[in-house]
């Protein structure tokens, strides 16, 4: 079992068309580094100068990492990391 990262629709093209990517790592930061290592095109979609873009929220099992330990939030196999950007249209 690995950590599952759920990739939102606007970022899927940069993730090889995948809705979910299996990654490894002890923290959210490590997990995302592994994600970007597998799909380098995601770097600029997710980050702006080392910081997560302000309209992308990261949830670990439905909890926002901003009230956990931010990018240092611990993750383990079986955990789901969801990347959830704001939805614009309407």
């Amino acid at each position: 079992m690995a950590i599952k990262v759920q990739v939102p629709t606007p970022m899927r093209e940069a993730a090889g068309g995948n809705a979910e990517v299996a990654v490894a790592g002890a923290t959210v930061k490590d997990a995302l580094a592994d994600l970007v290592r597998q799909y380098p095109a995601l770097q600029s979609k997710l980050f702006d100068g080392g910081k997560v873009r302000p309209y992308v929220n990261i949830f670990v099992n439905d909890e926002d990492i901003r009230y956990l330990d931010e990018l240092d939030t611990a993750v383990q196999d079986g955990v789901t990391v969801a990347l959830i950007p704001a939805v614009a249209g309407g």
Binding site: P10, K45, P54, A86
Partner: peptide, 11 residues
Amino acid sequence: FEAAPNPGDVG
């Protein structure tokens, strides 16, 4: 959501 997405960054 701290800031608005740029046009084109989200669908």
